[in-house]
Design a protein around this nucleic acid. Structure first.
Lengths: 312, 312
DNA sequence: TTTAACTATGAATATAATTCATGTTGGATT
DNA sequence: AATCCAACATGAATTATATTCATAGTTAAA
């Protein structure tokens, strides 16, 4: 019945003071507006404006409609502009999940650096995913997942962020703290503490323990880095953590951290996004910010080697 | 570009969880909605919802549009209902003006009695008119004018309210206070104090003084009854006032009030409204309330004689 | 009274939305 | 994996709707 067209007509009418000029303003003929308004008036059984009298004056019904117009039309304009920006990737939603808690260390500063430049992007951390964040990303429930274990999923692309070393965190008084390096065999009688992710997806197991045929005595999980650190410090087990995540604890003398094996264990971190979002300016800008902040903030990280290039 | 239709579609979509059911809800075919949404998506260059996955999930752009829908559609519904009610006269605007200030005496209680029963009617007193309220009524700037002097104006109808006597108010110590009745000749050497209305429109002049060929020494005006009373009490002149307006002052011993001539001077009060508004329920209800309140509140008033009936 | 500016009207036209009939797809089921 | 079902997509035909055109009728001001 009522339509945006009518609200726009009424606004033009009250701005211009006559049907004829309103028609010009809207780039239609005066006749079109006349028909339009007559249909409205007939439909509701009210007069909208007084024809005699110049400049034209609205009736109470006209005033009512004009008030509605000035409430509604700005909302519509805003929505249209938002849709256009979404369409061009100048605006977007960025609901993020991380698979390892310590990534907050560089993700939060990255978001803080990004936010002021992209105020229209809806930023959010979604903490409750832990497992299975990638399927949620594919379903469109998330928009970016930080992972160390990219899996080939249709419609998901993995953007390499950086390469980092995994160190074994042990209590200062732990016997392994006396060694400069840790071998796989050293861990055969240890309890491993990990983030709540399947061992198949953890590089300590895949790159280090399993190739050597070693399995820890048991594995227990904790979802926050601080809890893992507490457990390790109180001799409840050992943990393989990113070098940049243990750094502050080794610096403050709470833990020791030792490289694993002869060359150390290195892992890559990726940002996973849906391929449809990948090229969007707001997304590229975010990825650039993350790389920038990471390389400035974290010590000991490297670029991820390209697939075509030399690879260990 | 964007249209209410689209907002309604999006609302139905999110309520029903599928295009097909949304189409049922809106009483159109699924095909119609499919075309509609595709046009929108093409127009803005965004996806609005993810096709795979049941129940369907909106993209950020879809969410944006849905948010707009839930902001806008209630406003539209409200406007439509208001227009319908305006059309049926269940709702309206009642901006009132009075030509004599003492009418507040019964008008304010009338409005107070009316307001709770018609909360949708926009009531207002427009004080600044004094003169020329009737043309403003005809132009649609006012909706009801209380007048004692109906003038034939196209499109204005006069609804009789009540008939009342006009008394001459004089100071208690004034020489005329000693007479039981006042003759026209008695006023030839007096100063008249009136409301700021042309003498041609005042019944004391038309019915009483001019027929007897009498003109007061001078006329001065005051717009509030209280000011007229003060002037009269302090011997600055005399005033012809409605019996119900002087009543409280004579009761409290501030003034004396005397009838004019042998039979007294009687005047009629009318509510003037545009003929298009006259029959509307909200208007009839107001007129009924005014009559009811007046006859219960004011002493000494009568019904206005019908034109066909016996007339003095 | 005349005039200039504005609004109304009906038929013709142009535009846009909807349906119809059918094809395609994704996800669940066996 | 093959099948099936429900849901969505598509293009042409149709219908509905809005707009224009041409003209007539009003109104307010000169």
């Amino acid at each position: 019945m009522l339509d945006l067209k009518h609200l726009k007509t009424l606004r033009a009418l009250s701005e211009s003071g006559s049907l004829t000029r309103a028609a010009d303003q809207l780039h239609v003929t005066q006749s079109a507006l006349s028909h339009q308004i007559r249909d409205l008036e007939d439909g509701f059984g009210v007069q909208l404006f007084v024809r005699k009298s110049r400049p034209l004056r609205l009736t109470p019904a006209g005033d009512c409609l004009l008030a509605t117009a000035s409430a509604v039309l700005p909302l519509i304009a805003e929505a249209e502009s938002a849709l256009f920006q979404l369409g061009k990737g100048q605006r977007g939603r960025l609901h993020m999940a991380i698979e390892c808690h310590s990534c907050y260390l560089w993700l939060i500063p990255s978001v803080n650096a990004y936010r002021p430049n992209w105020p229209e992007v809806e930023l959010d951390f979604v903490g409750h995913w832990h497992l299975d964040a990638l399927p949620a990303l594919a379903r469109g429930e998330l928009d970016l997942v930080v992972t160390a274990d990219p899996q080939p999923i249709e419609g998901i692309v993995y953007e390499p962020l950086f390469r980092f070393e995994i160190l074994l965190a042990v209590a200062l008084t732990h016997s392994l703290a006396e060694q400069r390096r840790i071998s796989a065999a050293d861990l055969g009688d240890q309890i491993m503490i990990t983030y709540p992710v399947a061992p198949e997806r953890l590089d300590v197991f895949r790159q280090f323990l399993w190739p050597a045929g070693v399995e820890p005595v048991s594995v227990r999980t904790a979802d926050m880095t601080m809890m893992i650190v507490q457990l390790v410090a109180s001799q409840r087990g050992v943990a393989a953590l990113p070098s940049w995540a243990v750094r502050e604890y080794t610096d403050s003398g709470l833990l020791a951290a030792r490289p694993l094996g002869a060359e150390g264990v290195w892992s890559n971190l990726y940002a996973s996004v849906r391929s449809e979002d990948y090229a969007a300016p707001f997304m590229q800008a975010f990825l650039a910010t993350v790389r920038d902040v990471s390389f400035r903030t974290l010590s000991g990280i490297r670029a991820v080697p390209t697939e075509s290039g030399p690879d260990a």
